[in-house]
Design a protein around this nucleic acid. Structure first.
Lengths: 275, 275
DNA sequence: CGTTCCCTTGAGTAGTTTCAATACTTGTGG
DNA sequence: CCACAAGTATTGAAACTACTCAAGGGAACG
């Protein structure tokens, strides 16, 4: 549960102490944009955001928090656990994205009012509820915070674009490698990355639906990762021998996550006084 | 150039007259969100938006308006022509999205400051420039308009998600069919849809790079569309015999475009007075 | 009137799907 | 504690989809 990733080759997103402090101060929203634009939020803005979460719910795995087409009047911040964006087409299911703690999973529902996909709990989760009334107030009175919220929804779009690339470019084995490399990096950003493994509640059929392949072929793809000594999946956890090889194999380059790196947001948005 | 699509099965997005009026009143921004949330903008907001475009540029096809990683201080509204979001990986190029007139193609650059992809003109284009200073003012003083701008960037994300589904699910032939079905619908929304064809400046290699396949295989996929009597591509223009069959073949369902349909934005966002 | 870019076709290979069958794992009830 | 059921994981073989290399044909533009 260290904040510092393995191998010494990775960037440190925060010390264990600073992360623990942040979670202690903001137990519901402390991971929101951690490792990305969180440093641009003032203490007041972070407090305001924390107080906007009026309710915390615990939900079982496999539950839909939201269905495609539902009219929504609140948004949901994922506090603990994993969620998936899914779409169902009669018999088949497609997974369009994966969410980790700190993600404001349906913040876009504030502007869209209806979503084009379902939001499913992958394993047990804890979520915080923010009413759209509160968000409306933020839009009216807190332009800087509003812009940071906007930024958060754009991060999802950037991840979508990377998935498009992943699907256009990679074979099934490389796609899973990419999925795990991304997940690991995102967990690192919010202080939940482990040293040598990535733990998820996902089964092979889930991974298949994320990678646009069949569960059977996903099984063979994972066998390839094992044979090549990149990593081994056992009961949802990928045990990784060499993180760098995992990332290379999956053609993963973290910059699209807008953490520290070439695309990282610079001083322009850093100061809350500007907004 | 009719606003009413062919076949009688499609929804009318605006009469020729109302579209012409809108373009006459707002020659640079008149197509922005047309057929989607434009009706939620007040006259004042539309005027403000039009006046935010301080410069119009004509650009040759093949030009990059913006490169991945560039620090940006303005955003770009596409007035005429087509653009593509691309990423280059040494030898290969990937196309992550396609933009049509009325699209605020790098509005997300306002919040992200650096983009993760290039923006290329596909064929000659005309664009309007909006400085980020102006956008900043809007964030400060026009919360309703700000929210509509936010909405516009979320539409792109919705299209990204559909592309993910398309790539996870469809064969190459069905993928191109989907690309053209989507494009047609989006052109209809902004009053540029034709009766029985979709005209683009795209070559087969472009289509291949959008569909995650090779130019050679794309050629065979297009041959299949021709053989099955769905449509025929000649010099960028797809001549469509039966629009409904094109959409069925590409498993296209327009609702993710948030025009009229089950996901269409309802009264909640309709009134500018609310914001 | 030839160069260049774009499109088309053929043949062999690689990656993926499908159907079918078999094991492993976990939780449950006897 | 064992037996069983349900869900999950694994393997084999044939069919399909897509990729690569190779070659040739067509249209546009100087």
């Amino acid at each position: 549960m260290k904040g510092e990733p393995a191998g010494g080759s990775q960037i440190v997103f925060g010390t264990d102490e600073s992360i623990a402090e942040e979670i202690a101060s903001y137990p519901r929203t402390g991971r929101f944009l951690m490792g990305r634009l969180r440093h641009a939020l003032s203490r007041d803005e972070k407090r305001l955001l924390e107080d906007m979460v009026t309710e915390v719910r615990t939900v079982e795995g496999g539950t839909a928090l939201l269905h495609r087409n539902d009219l929504v009047n609140h948004s949901t911040l994922l506090i603990d656990g994993y969620m998936m964006r899914t779409v169902h087409d009669g018999s088949r299911r497609f997974i369009l994205g994966l969410q980790v703690p700190g993600d404001f999973v349906d913040l876009h529902g504030f502007a869209l009012k209806r979503l084009d996909h379902d939001l499913m709990a992958a394993g047990p989760i804890r979520v915080g509820i923010v009413s759209h009334e509160r968000l409306e107030e933020v839009m009216q009175t807190q332009p800087h915070l509003a812009r940071v919220l906007w930024f958060a929804t754009l991060l999802d779009a950037a991840i979508h674009r990377e998935w498009i690339m992943k699907l256009e470019q990679l074979t099934a084995a490389r796609r899973v490698a990419h999925v795990f490399a991304e997940l690991w990096q995102r967990l690192d950003q919010v202080g939940l990355g482990r040293t040598d493994s990535v733990r998820t509640p996902l089964i092979q059929a889930d991974l298949a639906d994320m990678c646009g392949t069949t569960a059977i072929h996903m099984n063979r793809a994972l066998a390839q990762l094992r044979k090549e000594g990149i990593g081994e999946l056992r009961r949802g956890t990928l045990y990784v021998a060499d993180r760098r090889r995992l990332e290379e194999f999956g053609k993963f380059d973290a910059s699209y996550l807008y953490g520290r790196g070439s695309l990282a947001v610079g001083t322009a948005l850093d100061s809350p006084d500007r907004g």
